[in-house]
């Protein structure tokens, strides 16, 4: 058993876990931060993505103890951080994903939203190509990615104060706008 400190979502915590535990295992099963998901446990899917010092990493491949001294942000951290900055409700990325219908089963989405959050932190006006590149380590099995990309583009458009592009379906069968 190793005792070490983790800084998770701004909290400095003392953790005791065996050396062979991954960060994902410690987050989920020791700290109860079950928002980080596991889809493959070996680096192939991106569901376990968390931010480490602001960059997206795969917590299933990171030995937990080696995260000491770094700032970890999980999906649970976004709303409180948004509120602390004076925001209302969920983080704009989370809200946009919800508004765009991107949260189908939702299982890939904590990882996906953190990848998106990291992208927007670094590059508030990504092109569609840059969005695809930034999400290229996160598998989603439900959405066909369309509403995910729309959600990120919605964040970009709203931050820039421009009208987001409307999806094809929004003018329905009878040509009326919904």
């Amino acid at each position: 058993m190793r005792v070490f400190r983790l800084n998770v979502n701004g909290d400095d915590l003392e953790v005791a876990a065996p050396a062979h535990w991954t960060l994902l295992e410690v987050l989920r099963y020791e700290l109860g931060l079950i928002g980080s998901k596991q889809g493959c446990d070996k680096g192939d899917c991106g569901a376990c993505t968390v931010l480490l010092d602001g960059s997206p990493v795969l917590s299933c491949l990171r030995l937990a103890a080696t995260a000491e001294g770094h700032a970890v942000v999980t999906i649970e951290g976004l709303m409180p951080m948004h509120k602390a900055r004076g925001g209302d409700g969920a983080d704009v990325v989370q809200d946009a994903f919800d508004r765009c219908g991107a949260l189908q089963c939702g299982f890939c989405q904590p990882g996906m939203m953190l990848s998106a959050r990291a992208l927007l932190n670094e590059n508030p006006k990504p092109t569609r190509g840059e969005i695809h590149d930034a999400l290229a380590g996160n598998l989603c099995r439900c959405t066909g990615y369309t509403q995910i990309v729309q959600a990120v583009e919605l964040c970009v458009a709203e931050a820039a104060g421009v009208e987001p592009a409307q999806p094809a379906w929004s003018a329905d069968a009878n040509g009326k706008k919904v």
Binding site: I75, A90, F97, D98, L103, M113
Partner: peptide, 9 residues
């Protein structure tokens, strides 16, 4: 349940 999923809850 969208926001519950979005926030990891």
């Amino acid at each position: 349940d969208g926001l519950a999923k979005a926030t990891g809850h």
